[in-house]
């Protein structure tokens, strides 16, 4: 099957290992990702905080290109991009006035056919948990992870229509199919501070700190994420969080696609596992996984 792929700015920048592992894993599972030609930024928090119509139009332009490529299913690995694309699609479908405005602004028909999915959803709905489990060559046993969904993968529920916004389970089930043990914890869908990493760093240190502390208390040895913002905040600010809280967490923050790839038999460098700041390599060696 072919799916329109929206990598987003982060996956072309700091999160290139997420891009690389996502492409490898999808190919392995028989999903052909076709990058949206000449895609542009979804607008992120910056656009929706400053101009509503600009935010919707920036995302709509990308969906319209996907429709021109005859691809109605669109996937975005970044939870932030996924949320913006999905919101644009929701607004266009639910308001004729917005659809008309967007059409004028982007100079193309409003993309009403696009079905936007996040990448966890894409794999679960199009491949299935059992089929993923069958592909496992190296079970990731004896390792306890906390699956962290953050805000934007499931919320707002009326827009995403994906999983449970309070106690989501999809990523847990996907990781369990690789042999991982997933912990029950309180902060699965709490916020890491999102786009405030540079502008109000204290918010990320505060909210991200609560997430890391909850993962530690639940006995997790690593945190699994499906968002480059969550990954960057929890990874690059972990040292600052440790200083403020006086606790050494040393929790690797790993993309779920990297763990899928590892279980399918791909190497550390193919998956970019060596690119994470808080290195997962010691943990993975201790578990006999690399």
């Amino acid at each position: 099957m072919s799916v329109a792929y929206f990598p987003g700015c982060s996956l072309h920048g700091m999160a290139s290992e997420y891009d690389r592992s996502a492409r490898l894993v999808c190919r392995h599972l028989g999903i052909e990702l076709k990058e949206i030609e000449d895609w542009s930024c979804c607008g992120a928090t910056a656009a929706h905080s400053l101009d509503h119509l600009l935010a919707v139009s920036l995302s709509a332009r990308n969906l319209a290109i996907a429709e021109q490529m005859n691809l109605n299913q669109v996937t975005a690995p970044c939870a932030g991009c996924y949320n913006r694309l999905k919101t644009a699609s929701y607004e266009i479908r639910n308001s004729e006035a917005i659809a008309a405005e967007v059409e004028k602004i982007i100079g193309a028909p409003a993309p009403v056919y696009s079905e936007v999915t996040n990448m966890v959803q894409l794999i679960i709905e199009n491949v299935g948990i059992e089929a993923v489990a069958e592909k496992v060559r190296k079970p990731l046993s004896n390792m306890k992870v906390a699956c962290y969904y953050g805000c934007l993968l499931t919320r707002p529920a009326k827009v995403t229509g994906f999983d449970d916004p309070e106690q989501p389970e999809s990523l847990d089930r996907l990781m369990q199919s690789l042999g991982l043990e997933t912990v029950n914890w309180s902060h699965k869908a709490e916020c890491c501070g999102g786009g405030f990493a540079a502008s109000e760093t204290s918010i990320v240190v505060d909210l991200g700190g609560q997430v890391l502390e909850a993962a530690r208390q639940a006995g997790a040895e690593a945190v699994v994420v499906a968002c480059p913002m969550c990954q960057t905040n929890l990874d690059t600010r972990q040292e600052a969080i440790e200083k403020v809280r006086g606790v050494k967490y040393s929790l690797p923050i790993i993309y779920f696609t990297q763990l899928l790839g590892l279980a399918f038999g791909y190497s550390v460098s193919q998956l970019g596992l060596n690119k994470l700041l808080t290195s997962p390599l010691t943990l993975l060696k201790a578990k006999g996984l690399i």
Binding site: C9, D38, L58
Partner: peptide, 30 residues
């Protein structure tokens, strides 16, 4: 908090100029 708005504006400047955000450049400029 002027920094929050400044960051958002700088980010949109990049989108308008290049169509995409260069994170490294944005962080340094901010």
């Amino acid at each position: 908090r002027k920094n929050v708005q400044l960051f958002n504006k700088l980010m949109l400047d990049y989108v308008q100029k290049n169509g995409r955000v260069a994170e490294t450049h944005l962080m340094v400029r901010f």
